[in-house]
């Protein structure tokens, strides 16, 4: 398949997954806030800051809202078109990626994605957001889930499908690791978080229900880490995602499991092995933040290597000198690199 197409499918999946995760994070965080109405305004800022940091939007927020308050965060993260990482812009990116590869995806996939984009950019949604932001987040989450479900049900399991899944799982692993990290900024270390905050993290990863069934009781650091990092079965756990990534990379290259033929495969294999052998003890010993930081670095390396191996072909690197690069091309590559640096 065309390198550019693979790249666009990958980013289409990543962008929509990112929008879904942001929506869920905002939904959980807003709900958590409702439970803490007595909090002071200073604490309110402290509350949102880690979220803005974890989603790499802090700088933009300060630029756009020099005197920003907690009330500005929701619209900024969700609908603001000047924030290149807002949910709206993620969906716009997803749709643009999909539009350039429309011939490679099913009509139903396109229709759902387009519907979701039309929803988020409509005036009615803007006013709905003022009244009932939760409804908007619901629709976004549903739309993304529907999109992935439709993809499952309508797309042939060819290379294109594999790149879509790669994008989805890389983004998901990344976001799960970030959400685990968010509350750490709020307190001195992970262990001091109370069960309400752990609940919020579980909700951000759509894991609350699973937690009650699989672990039970009030959420604790150990229990949450076991589920969100090490679970073999929960589809949003980091280990689950990395196992999928490892499998997909081998499917794409055709190299046997356990071996590797590019950096992405090597790093994915290494991370999977670490996750297979570690437990919550290692994390708590090392500190949740540092551990997650390492995970994110490896995920970044995998993403970069996928780009270098399958999009920026080695042959091209030799010949790039005589290709006058088109403006569009530069633009796209910049966007790519920016996005990757932020992970």
């Amino acid at each position: 398949m065309l390198s550019r197409v693979a790249d666009n499918l990958y980013w289409m999946a990543r962008s929509i997954e990112r929008a879904e995760n942001l929506a869920r994070l905002m939904q959980a965080s807003t709900e958590l806030l409702l439970d803490s109405e007595t909090l002071g305004s200073r604490y309110l800022n402290d509350y949102w800051d880690p979220i803005l940091i974890a989603t790499a939007m802090e700088e933009h927020f300060r630029e756009l809202y020099p005197n920003g308050t907690a009330a500005d965060v929701g619209p900024f993260v969700t609908l603001n078109e000047e924030n290149p990482h807002s949910i709206t812009m993620c969906l716009r990116d997803a749709r643009e990626s999909a539009r350039t590869v429309r011939d490679q995806i099913s009509d139903e996939m396109w229709t759902e994605l387009n519907d979701l984009f039309l929803f988020i950019t409509s005036r009615a949604t803007n006013s709905l957001f003022q009244r009932a932001p939760q409804n908007v987040y619901d629709r976004i989450i549903q739309g993304s889930l529907l999109f992935h479900g439709i993809t499952d049900a309508t797309l042939a399991r060819t290379e294109g499908w594999q790149f879509i899944q790669l994008g989805k799982y890389l983004e998901r692993a990344d976001k799960t690791s970030r959400f685990l990290d968010i509350r750490v900024h709020g307190g001195p270390d992970g262990t001091s978080l109370d069960s309400i905050q752990w609940t919020s993290i579980l909700r951000s990863a759509s894991a609350f229900g699973t937690y009650r069934i699989e672990v039970g009781g009030e959420p604790t650091a150990e229990g949450v880490i076991d589920l969100l990092v090490f679970s073999m079965d929960f589809p949003r756990s980091i280990r689950f995602c990395v196992r999928e990534i490892d499998h997909l990379l081998h499917r794409i290259s055709g190299s046997p499991a356990g071996t590797y033929c590019n950096t992405a495969e090597r790093e994915a294999g290494r991370l999977l092995a670490t996750l297979n052998f570690n437990g919550n003890g290692e994390i708590l010993e090392r500190g949740l933040h540092d551990y997650m930081d390492d995970v994110q670095k490896v995920l970044n390396t995998i993403g970069q290597s996928i780009f270098e191996t399958y999009v920026l072909l080695p042959q091209d690197q030799l010949r790039l000198t005589f290709i006058p690069s088109s403006e569009q091309q530069q633009l796209r590559w910049q966007v790519l690199q920016q996005q990757q640096q932020q992970q």
């Binding site: 390198s3 550019r4 693979a6 091309q329």
Partner: peptide, 18 residues
């Protein structure tokens, strides 16, 4: 394909695939 998907090498046209 877009222009950037194609490359000419020794007088033949190729597309960049994965």
């Amino acid at each position: 394909v877009e222009g950037r998907d194609l490359i000419v090498v020794d007088g033949y046209v190729y597309m960049r695939t994965t």
